[in-house]
């Protein structure tokens, strides 16, 4: 099995305070991996380092064996990292279709001007096709021409997934997909995620507080606290580990 995404000894300091301490993790092709830990454990920081939102001074981030540590966000995206956001980030003033079309185009930048002149700015046939496919996959068929302001939070989150799928990612980073959703919505979201992951076969790195979602969705997990990787392994084992109890209940770890 090949490694899609890896961090090698990534450390991160904020004005002298250590947020990440030599974190090394790997995500294999098609694998669903969880990243868990209490508030302030450094999960978001690690996410931002992988995505390039924060610069990494110590350590390396690799994608498909290539060192991407110093690439800007949009280059990483084109190379195959997709993501969703905890507080959904959609493009205002746009329809669902617009979101998918621009994500598709951003990754195929050639001859944009020529195409624009030929189509007068309308989506091209292959873009319509690709976006229809993704919308169907996510059960958003009827919403293609809706402005995003009319979507529910759950639909918005699915649209983020759809948008990232248009770039054909090798690995998708899901940032707290359940936040702001209730139990029922979370369950529905999890079901959809499982389906599309099976269909498209991308790898997933999931940051999530909802233990249930992590347990049902991931096969393997990393536990992070105070910027250290405490333990890793099959999700069930991590959940039952003494480190997990310590991290979540605040008892001192007996090493």
């Amino acid at each position: 099995m090949s490694t899609v995404l890896a961090t090698r000894g990534v450390s991160k300091y904020f004005s002298g305070i250590m947020a990440l301490d030599r974190v090394t993790l790997e995500v294999n092709a098609g694998e669903r991996v969880g990243l868990i830990g209490p508030n302030g454990a450094g999960k978001t920081t690690l996410f931002n380092c992988i995505l390039g939102v924060l610069p990494v001074e110590v350590g390396e981030v690799e994608l498909n064996g290539e060192d991407i540590t110093s690439l800007p966000v949009h280059h990483r995206a084109r190379k195959g990292i997709g993501r969703t956001f905890q507080q959904i980030e959609l493009f205002a003033d746009s329809t669902v279709r617009d979101h998918l079309v621009i994500a598709y185009r951003a990754n195929r930048p050639r001859w944009a001007v020529v195409h624009d002149l030929l189509t007068l700015g309308r989506p091209r046939p292959e873009e319509m096709e690709a976006s229809d496919d993704v919308l169907e996959l996510l059960g958003l068929q009827g919403l293609a021409d809706e402005p995003v302001e009319r979507l529910s939070l759950g639909q918005g989150r699915l649209l983020e997934v759809a948008r990232t799928l248009m770039t054909n990612p090798d690995v998708v980073l899901l940032d707290e997909p359940s936040s702001g959703l209730d139990r029922r919505e979370t369950a529905a979201l999890a079901e959809t995620l499982v389906e599309i992951q099976a269909e498209r076969g991308f790898a997933v790195l999931l940051v999530e507080h909802d233990i249930e979602l992590v347990s049902s969705f991931t096969t393997r997990s990393y536990l992070l606290d105070f910027g250290h990787l405490l333990t890793s392994g099959p999700t069930e084992e991590v959940m039952a580990s003494p480190e997990m109890r310590a991290a979540y209940l605040g008892t001192a770890v007996v090493a």
């Binding site: 209490p38 508030n39 959703l181 209730d182 139990r183 979540y248 209940l249 605040g250 008892t251």
Partner: peptide
């Protein structure tokens, strides 16, 4: 509090929140 054990020791009453 997220670290439940401390909170339980200190407090008289507990309110458990779930999804708002």
């Amino acid at each position: 509090e997220q670290h439940v054990s401390h909170a339980l020791k200190l407090c008289d009453r507990v309110v458990l929140l779930d999804r708002g």
